[in-house]
Design a protein around this nucleic acid. Structure first.
Lengths: 208, 208
DNA sequence: GTCTATACATCGATAGAC
DNA sequence: GTCTATCGATGTATAGAC
C-alpha cells in the first residue's frame, strides 16, 4: 500500500489557501493599486484558480477590504512593540532623537509600507472605512503612546502635550512623504539630522 | 438668406475643445483615480467624441500627464499670490498664526485640492514625474518663500531656518491629511487652534 | 472546495466617412 | 478636425464538472 496516500505539500489546503490568496493580493494591490489590479493576476500570484478567490472573499472589494485591514493590524503590533523599545528613562531630547531616527529609517527602507501608505491615501476617497482602519490601528495608538510619554515628563513644560505630539509626528511623516513617496529627495533635499535636531530642540527648550 | 448661416455656440471649436477635454478629464480622474477612469467617460463629460480626445492628447497617459501638470501650475499661481497677502510687517507669531489658519482653512474646504493630493500620492509610484511636478511647482516654492521669511527675522533666533520651515509645513499638512483626507476628524479629533498655537509658540519662543 | 470554461461588459485605441 | 462604428484584449463574475 505504499504510495497510495499521496503526500501533497506542494499546494496549500483550505485554510492555507486564504493566506496564499492574501499574499498574492498584497503583492498585486500594493504594486498596481486597486483598480489596475485584476483578479486573474491575484489568482495567478496566489497559485490558485480565480473561482477559489471568489469563493473565499466574495468579490474584489471584499478581498481588498480584508487585505488592507489585515495589513493595518499586522503593522499595529510593530507600533506597540515600539512602546517599550529604547530606554525610556533617559534624557528626553536623546529619546526623541532616537525615536525620530527610527521612524525615518523605517519609512525610508520599507517599500511595502510606502506602497501601503500610497494606496491608503489614494483610495481614501472611495474606501473611507479603510482609511479609518489605518487611523484607528496605527495613527491613534502612536499619538496616544507619545502623548502619555510627554505627560510623564512635566519638566518639558509643554502647555499642550497632544498638540505637541502632532507637531512631532506630522513633521516626520511629511518629511518621509515628501522625500521618499513623492521623490522630493533630489528636488528639495534635506538631511534628516538637521530636521531631527531642529524638531527635538524646539520641543525640549520651549520654556516660557 | 436669413438663417442660412447657422450660429453654433453650443459646441466649442478647435482650441476650445482641448480645454473642454481637460475639464472633463479633471472631473473624472479626480473622482475615480487614473486606472478606474475610462476614456469613454472623459469624452462624454467633455461633450466630444472619444476619437477627438485621442487626437488631442495621444493616449490616456498623455492626457493624464497634461492634466496633472496643468493643475499643478494653476495652483502655483495661488501659492505665489499668497506671498504678499497678509501684512508681512507685523509680529511673527501673529503672521504665522494667520498663515497656518489660512492653509488649514483652504485644505479643509477645497475638495478638488484634496482629490488632487490623493491622486498625486496614490500614483506617485507609477507616475514619479508627476509627483516631481507637484514638488517643483508647489512644495518647493512654499518652502523657499517661508525660508526667506524666517531668514528676514533674525530675532526669532532660529539655528536652521529651512528645517524649521519643514516642521511648520509638515505639521500643518499632515494635520489636514489625517483629519480630512483620511477621515480622522471623528477618531482623533483636535481643534486646529490648539495645533496652531502650539506650533507657533514652539517656533517663536525657542530661545537658547 | 477547487478546478476549467465561459458569459457578458467594458476597456484603450483606431479606421474611415465627412 | 471631428464624428460613428468597430476591433481585439481584458475585466469581473459565475456555471458546472469533479
Amino acid at each position: 500500500m505504499i504510495g497510495t496516500e499521496t503526500i501533497n505539500l506542494e499546494r496549500p489546503k483550505s485554510k492555507e489557501k486564504a493566506e496564499a490568496i492574501l499574499e498574492g493580493a498584497m503583492q498585486e494591490f500594493l504594486a498596481h493599486g486597486y483598480a489596475a489590479t485584476s483578479m486573474d493576476r491575484v489568482a495567478k500570484a496566489a497559485g490558485v484558480s480565480k473561482a477559489t478567490v471568489y469563493s473565499h472573499f466574495g468579490d474584489k472589494e471584499g478581498l481588498f477590504n480584508t487585505l488592507i485591514k489585515v495589513l493595518a493590524e499586522d503593522k499595529f503590533k510593530t507600533v506597540m512593540a515600539l512602546q517599550e523599545s529604547p530606554s525610556l528613562e533617559q534624557d528626553p531630547q536623546l529619546f526623541l532623537q532616537q525615536l525620530a531616527n527610527q521612524l525615518i529609517e523605517n519609512g525610508r527602507s520599507d517599500r511595502t509600507f510606502q506602497n501601503f501608505i500610497r494606496i491608503i491615501i489614494g483610495e481614501s476617497g472611495r474606501f473611507p472605512e479603510l482609511a479609518k482602519a489605518y487611523v484607528n490601528n496605527l495613527a491613534k495608538p502612536g499619538i496616544e503612546i507619545l502623548t502619555k510619554y510627554f505627560k510623564s515628563h512635566p519638566e518639558l513644560n509643554l502647555p499642550d502635550e497632544e498638540a505637541t505630539v502632532r507637531v512631532f509626528l506630522g513633521t516626520l511623516i511629511y518629511y518621509i512623504m515628501l522625500q521618499e513617496l513623492l521623490h522630493g529627495k533630489d528636488v528639495v533635499p534635506l538631511e534628516s539630522d538637521r530636521l531631527i535636531n531642529t524638531l527635538t530642540h524646539l520641543i525640549t527648550v520651549a520654556k516660557d
